[in-house]
Every structure is written in structure tokens, then in C-alpha cells.
Design a protein around this nucleic acid. Structure first.
Lengths: 254, 254
DNA sequence: CAGTGGTCTAGACCACCGC
DNA sequence: CGGTGGTCTAGACCACTGG
């Protein structure tokens, strides 16, 4: 019946889709694995459709369905006439989308970042669970303040799992720049692919208020973020605080 | 039953896609028009793929691309082995997704609704702009209180453009039920297809606080919603207030 | 069972990009 | 210009749904 003239990438996947599994779904999984294992570095182009289709012994349309899945997942990006590229990852300043801190109408401004503290800590139950580590495992804990035009606007505390982010333990924070995700990429080879933000309302305690130059008990928005790499593993926990009266967010329904 | 495969609706669309316009894009536009003009009522099934493809003189794959567009738009819904259906529209209780008012762990509970006031008002500049009406045009203004287990939780004020919602001016509010969108559908033939919610923080004034049984000056979340029908026209403006300390929202970042 | 959408093929031609 | 992805075709077979 079926001629398997596919040249068998040995190891990770079977030569045939599991029964009940569509061919393009299986193909997508196969490509996903090759991407997350670093065969194609973020930013580089995949082989052309025709080549990939031939390589996997599959029709063009089928291969295109597989690629469409990975595009929808945020793993790939296609450009007409140029090629299919592994996504570079999230930029960074996206916290600002929750607030209207525009000063002088500049919406694209990146806040400057000041690292307030850096220490190795042991993971509490929540952190350990998110990272898939045992309770008490070592994690890197950072606190930083982000400012626009010299005005502090966001106070952040964040945790990173530790074998993976060892490179940040001793590196000079003065060289870090204002965005962390490109830093993760550069120093740790970690690509942040997607994130989940949980929004709540609260009141600032005395220390938080002082750092943000607000009054103790001032209303604030707390954004709890979990960021994930290409494989879907959680690689950052972050808590961001900002003035509730600067909060503004738009959500689409359906 | 009439099998009128005549392209009946002359005038609205050319027989050929405009140059530079893809065939499936043009086809989608054509189907979109037939849907929004009521040829197929929300909830009903479209003709089968094969029939539609034949009717438009197009290959199956091309027709499927067109349908995929309309599905992504939220206009259609496909069910394997059953058919392709015009979406019934938004349900209604979706305001609750911003809050954690779960009482007794019941997350699917629909709050009961009490209409506090109903009056014909004249549109201010903002309302008029949203509805595409002249300033001063007649709009219906409603205020209602929504409660869970007898506890008031959401205070809403909303505006509806008036020729379209005439049926609500005199109808007995006791018969309205707890959800408005199904009511719009039933009494006014208006299908709410999508909406845009804008979130902000504020403080309750005395009257608002009293209705929600909170203190004046209590922090609150204000959700400003603009709802749209199948054609993309804005057909509802709504402002919802709820206790800020019950606020909780999750957003995906990609 | 007949009818629906879902998958897949093996071609063709077009539109875009960069050299 | 050659190479890329985007559109389109005309079939085939599979998987699910309902009577």
C-alpha cells in the first residue's frame, strides 16, 4: 500500500503517524522537535516547502498544513518570496501594554531598567511547581525598577530557574540593557516564545510605594507573568507592580 | 423548498474577484454578505461544501479556504460530519471572566439581572460617534444591577442605538431574563458577534457604592464595552463597575 | 446507510523578493 | 533572473454524524 520512501530521521519519531493522528499533525510535531532541539536557530530560515515536502515524502499541501500549525503556535513566521523563519521570540517591553505611561505621546518608548537586587534563593512551593523543580532548589531572584523619563513606573520582582540561568549570576548588571528577554537569548540561549499574564488589584506596602514614589496604600495593579520557552517549559516568573490609576487594557471578545 | 441556485443578489458583488484580490477572499466576502443580509439565519446550516463549490464554480480546496476565513472571523462554526453553521452569537455572561465572584465554586452561574432604569436619551458626542449617528440622536439608556446569590456584584449602564432597538422601549422588563444578547436576538433581530472591552480602575461614587453595598470611594474596575453585530457595526455601549478586589484576569502574550 | 466535513495528492500557475 | 511562498485545481479516500 504505502511506499515509505522517506529517508527516516532516526531517533525521535516514528516513520509513520500514529493511528488516529493526521499526517500533517505528526509532521508538525516532527518539525517542532527539530526546531526546539536547535537544528534551526531562531531567526534562521527553514528549507523551502518543496525541499521539506520531498524530504518527508509528502505532498506540498500537506506540508503547508503542518507549517500553518507551527505558525499559529508562534514558532514560525512566513514571508512571501523570502522564506519560512524560526521566530526570534518576544521582544520585551510588552508590560507597558497594560498601562498608559506615554510621556510626550511616545508609545514605543522602552523604559530604562535598574537592577535593585540579585540573589540566589531557594524555591518556594509555587516557584518550584512552575519550574518543575523540587522545593528548595536554587533559583535566581531579581528585583528591578523601570522608569520612563526618569519617573519610576514599574516595580518588578522575578525568579529564574538556576542551572539554566547560571550565566546571569555573576555577569555585570550594568551590561544588561533595558530588556531581559534579548538578554536571556544572548547569555543563556533561552528564547521566550509566549507568556501568560495574570492581573490583579492590590495596595502598595511602604517599601513598594517608596520605590515608585507613591503613598503607602496606594492602589496598584499586580501583573503575575509566567513566561515559556520554545519547548513550552516555564522559564520565568515575574511580578510587576504599577499605579492602578495609570492602568488601561483592551481585550477582544470573540 | 426552493432550490434557487440563481445568484439572486445581483448588484452587491462582481462575478469576478477584483485584480489583486484572491479568489477565496472574494468568495468569503460574497458569503459574508449573504450571511449578514440574513440569507442564512444564525444557527442554521450552510449548503454542503460540494454544493457551494459547484455553485460558485470553484474547486473544493478554494471554497474551504474561504470558509476558513469566516470561521476565523467568528462568523461560522464547522462540525465534522454535521455541517457548517452560522454562529449563534455571543452568549452573555462573559463579564464575569474579569472577576472572581464564584460563590460555592460555581463558575458557570449566570448573575440575576435587575433593570434599575430605562429612558430615551439623546446621544452625546462619544455615543453618537460609536453608533455612527448624529449628536443628539435618540438612544436607549439602561441601568441594571447584576447579583449572584442575592449579593449585588456588577453595576451596569448601557446605551443602544434607537431605530434598531425600538422593540425594547416599551416591552415589559420583567420578561427580559438575565442575559441581554439573547434578548437583542429575540426582540430586535440583532446578533452580537464580537466585542471590545476596555479596562480601567477607579473609585465608586456614593450612589454606585450604595447600589453595590460597598463604601463610597471603594476601588472598582470599570469595563467599557463596545459590542458589534455581524456586519461590524457597533450596536451597544456598556459600562460595567465591579469591586476591584474581586478583579482577576488572564491574558495570553505572543 | 447516505451525507457531512477532514485529510491528502500531484500537479499548475501566480506574486513577491533579492541579486 | 531564480527561488520563495501563495493560490488553485480535480480528483481520491477517510472519519464522523445522524437516521
Amino acid at each position: 500500500m504505502d511506499f515509505a520512501f522517506s529517508p527516516a530521521l532516526a531517533g525521535t519519531h516514528a516513520d509513520q503517524p500514529a493511528p488516529g493522528q493526521s499526517r500533517y499533525g505528526w509532521l508538525a510535531a516532527s518539525l517542532r522537535a527539530r526546531i526546539t532541539q536547535g537544528e534551526w536557530v531562531p531567526g534562521t530560515a527553514l528549507p523551502a516547502e518543496a525541499a521539506l515536502a520531498r524530504e518527508h515524502g509528502v505532498a506540498l499541501g500537506t506540508l503547508r498544513q503542518a507549517l500553518a500549525l507551527l505558525v499559529a503556535e508562534g514558532l514560525l513566521e512566513r514571508q512571501h518570496g523570502r522564506g519560512t523563519f524560526v521566530r526570534a521570540g518576544l521582544g520585551g517591553a510588552s508590560m507597558l501594554r497594560f498601562f498608559r505611561f506615554r510621556h510626550g505621546g511616545d508609545l514605543t518608548a522602552t523604559p530604562t531598567s535598574t537592577i535593585l537586587s540579585r540573589q540566589v534563593a531557594s524555591a518556594g512551593p509555587e516557584t518550584a511547581d512552575a519550574f518543575g523543580l523540587p522545593v528548595g532548589a536554587s533559583v535566581l531572584e531579581l528585583q528591578r525598577l523601570r522608569s520612563l523619563a526618569g519617573e519610576p513606573c514599574l516595580l518588578e520582582q522575578l525568579w529564574l530557574p538556576l542551572p539554566a540561568f547560571d550565566a546571569l549570576k555573576d555577569s555585570d548588571t550594568a551590561t544588561w540593557g533595558d530588556l531581559l528577554y534579548p538578554l536571556y537569548q544572548r547569555l543563556c540561549g533561552v528564547t521566550v516564545n509566549k507568556a501568560e499574564d495574570d492581573l490583579r488589584f492590590g495596595l502598595l506596602n511602604r517599601e513598594q510605594a517608596a520605590l515608585l514614589r507613591l503613598d503607602a496604600g496606594h492602589p496598584c495593579v499586580q501583573v503575575n507573568r509566567r513566561a515559556f520557552d520554545l519547548t513550552g517549559r516555564c522559564i520565568e516568573l515575574r511580578t510587576t507592580l504599577g499605579d492602578a490609576f495609570a492602568f488601561q487594557y483592551t481585550a477582544q471578545v470573540r
